[in-house]
């Protein structure tokens, strides 16, 4: 049978990530956030390999876009460096704890499935409720941001001028990034869904700076956690390669379609899919523990 052929699942995975790659840029959701929960719900791979792949996917896509954004002045090391000094440690811890749970307890993967479903609910709520401010006004910088000189500028084509910005609330934001780093490392998720609102709404970074600097943060956090997964054999090329290629090709098409498509409708569709996969992941975990019937 076709399903029994070894190449069947990698081929399906390629098509699946290709579709995710298309819809992710249109909806404004990171590919990894869709990949990990949906693959956990519908594919036969253990959650260890899914998280390892999710991390490599998020790392690859952020590494591909971060240099260009940095050269334009949109992604800024002055913002990234103090944040990753803390969040890369928690990201490593997340990877260690995540693999420890699945490998040390017979029911570990079911606990991870349930926790992943809960995290997805949180992401859903964040996406549904957080509003973005295009150009937040920072009247006064906090002491730490001032001391570090966290500011920057970029040329904004829509305004045909250089936009200057300053950052604030660094000390308040760092614990939030620490938590996000842990979740990213533990579940193999890119963390743009959390990085962007914190950078934009708490620290006062303009939306474009927030999304770009988030990419920079992901490069460091996910690279740090990737070593944990590599050192534990949780990265299999047979799963990683079709996924990275699928999402990369899909994202290029998606980025072009995003100009024409109605982002709101697609965003609602993606949020619906996330909610569904959250339910499925929790259900799969509970059924694995024997609390509810399987599906």
């Amino acid at each position: 049978m076709l399903v029994d052929a070894w190449w069947f699942w990698p081929a399906v995975l390629f098509l699946f990530t290709f579709v995710i790659g298309i819809i992710a840029p249109i909806s404004g959701v990171g590919g990894g956030v869709l990949f990990v929960p949906l693959t956990t719900a519908f594919f036969p791979f253990n959650v260890d390999f899914i998280r390892g792949t999710g991390l490599i996917m998020a790392l690859t896509s952020s590494l591909s876009s971060a240099p260009q954004l940095t050269k334009k002045g949109l992604a800024n090391l002055r913002i990234m460096a103090p944040i990753v000094a803390v969040s890369s440690v928690t990201s490593i811890l997340g990877g260690i704890v995540g693999l420890w749970i699945t490998n040390s307890f017979p029911e570990g993967k079911h606990y991870i499935n349930i926790m992943l479903g809960i995290v997805l609910f949180v992401i859903f709520v964040v996406m549904a409720t957080s509003k973005r401010v295009e150009f937040p006004e920072v009247r006064e910088q906090d002491g730490l941001s001032k001391k570090l000189g966290v500011a920057g500028a970029w040329y904004e084509p829509s305004l045909e001028r250089v936009v200057e910005y300053r950052i604030t609330n660094m000390a308040i934001a760092i614990p939030a990034f620490a938590m996000v780093g842990f979740i990213a490392g533990m579940f193999g998720l890119g963390a743009g869904w959390a990085n962007v609102p914190v950078l934009n709404l708490i620290m006062g970074a303009p939306v474009k700076v927030a999304t770009s600097t988030s990419m920079l943060i992901i490069t460091v956090n996910d690279a740090a956690a990737a070593w944990i997964y590599l050192a534990n054999g949780a990265v299999l090329p047979v799963i990683v390669i079709p996924s990275v290629i699928g999402i990369t090709i899909g994202a290029r098409i998606g980025a072009k379609l995003a100009v024409k498509a109605k982002p709101k409708a697609v965003r609602y569709l993606v949020m619906g899919i996330m909610l569904m996969s959250a339910v499925l992941d929790v259900w799969k975990g509970l059924s694995g523990l024997g609390y509810v019937p399987g599906f």
């Binding site: 699942w9 699945t102 490998n103 534990n232 054999g233």
Partner: peptide
Amino acid sequence: TVQNWDKPAEEFW
């Protein structure tokens, strides 16, 4: 790989 990729990493190897 296909026969074992549903197992945790340690058991898989």
